[in-house]
Amino acid sequence: MRHIISLTLILAGFWLLLSGHFVPLLLGLGAVSILLVVAIALRMDAFDHENQPLHLTFRFTPYWVWLAGEIVKSNIEVVRCIWGPVSAISPTRIHLTATQRSDVGKVIYANSITLTPGTVAMRLEGDQIEVHALTRAAAASLQGGEMGRRVRELER
């Protein structure tokens, strides 16, 4: 039930921000549309029960800021590799253990790994994440485990 409400609210916000027309006709149509979408989403949900992680959204902000910083840093690193000699790269493949409890947490972790250039999560099975890294340094910084810890703090 909580998921339905939060989804409805977020969709309503999405509609209002997209539309920008606040005449009764469009607002009414928007309400109908949202109801339709929620109904379809419910029907889709009925087939497996993965929770909507939308309620996590609010706790994301500090994590996003940290992640943005990481992205900038690793971008600089990769661009240096691109313009530098090819021999500077040292492709590496490592295995990490995702200590997050929920599936959603693991997905956030894997996506964060991929989002920072220089490291790509290739496989996520059980709690094992297989990562391809452009350089040894990038791999090592992942193995340091700070990102995993931060994602774990997100769930709780």
Binding site: N75, W83, L115, P117, G118
Partner: peptide
């Protein structure tokens, strides 16, 4: 840079990183 990266890097997986540069930041 990313465009040059996907041309210069030696194999698919490394090119993936170069494409990541252009896709994100």
């Amino acid at each position: 840079s990313g465009g040059i990266g996907i041309l210069r890097f030696p194999d698919f997986f490394t090119r993936l990183h170069a494409a990541g540069v252009t896709d994100t930041l």
